[in-house]
Amino acid sequence: MNILIFVLLSLLKVAVVTVIFLTAVAYTVLLERKLVGRIQNRWGPSRVGPFGLMQPLADGLKLFLKEDLMPDAVARPLFILAPIIALSCALISIGVIPFGENIRWHGVDMFQIADVNIGLLVILGVTSVGVYGIALSGWSSNNKYSLLGSLRSTAQMVSYELALGLSVIGVVLRTGSLRLRDIVNVQNTHGILSWNIFGGLQLIAFFIYLMAAFAETNRTPFDLPEAESELTAGYHTEYSSMKFAMFFMAEYANMINVGCVATLLFLGGWSSPFGNLFPAFGGAVVQALLPVFWFVAKVFCFLFLYVWVRGTLPRFRYDQLMGFGWKFLLPIAIANVMVSSLVLAFHG
């Protein structure tokens, strides 16, 4: 009986998280279109539903009903496999992300799907495997623009993965654990003052992570893989219908993942910015849901920043991109690791 409850609750948890995540992906697209619209002094989508709120539904329906084109001379198995790899790698990461206090009901953790000892490494590993989706899509499309897009993307992701990996080491050193719950628990003693970005002295690491993460998710100003003025649409030029939608969803899901990881590592996860300044109010349910609210609010701020940057900055040139990653971000990340470990060794 006990194992039955466990399995049922776990399945329920997975289903709920997946549905919420996919909805969040759809509405991130709307958020981007709305915000970029406002930045460019126009309305953005406003016709479907109040304030255009039903637009994601209409978009999804449209993509679903489009013809699924299969161009001649594509490497068929890889052409189909590529969007599946991209989307599934983007969806797996949410499985190890904790978004609330460790509250158990029938022995099942309510606010995390799987509490893994090495959660941070799982996320890094899944992200690094996700490159194949983009790499293979460009190669199998038999199109020179796609191929150039995926070559750029592969080189970019491999280069920036180094800076990304090194930027989180300071956080891991402070915590002494790779478990995401431990990383947040270290930060929730004195509210905003003990978050890693301030109390952990990881401000520089946060900015390295931010820039590397923008490059990892192929977003402006690092969106060379799909630079439309040079490469039509980059790696997904030949894709249509749901196969294109899968790449699109993967991109936005990755944005949310990166936002979640940045929140957990640097912005105190689900902990309140006020710490224990205010007395606990409401019942047990409010106290359980308040951390989730803080977590979602922080991730939302991060997504807002993403869109803001997209609306503001122009695209890098390719040699600038590589120079920035290897000659600027990587040395700073290494210096940050050394300084953090020295400080921790003498004061920690």
Binding site: I118, G138, V158, E161
Partner: peptide, 26 residues
């Protein structure tokens, strides 16, 4: 060996093999 397993994924599947695929594509 959980750390080793994930290091294997990150380093070999995620970085070295990506470079292999990159060279083959290039």
């Amino acid at each position: 060996a959980e750390f080793l397993a994930l290091a294997q994924i990150i380093v070999y599947s995620g970085a070295i093999m990506v470079l292999f695929v990159f060279v083959i594509m290039l």
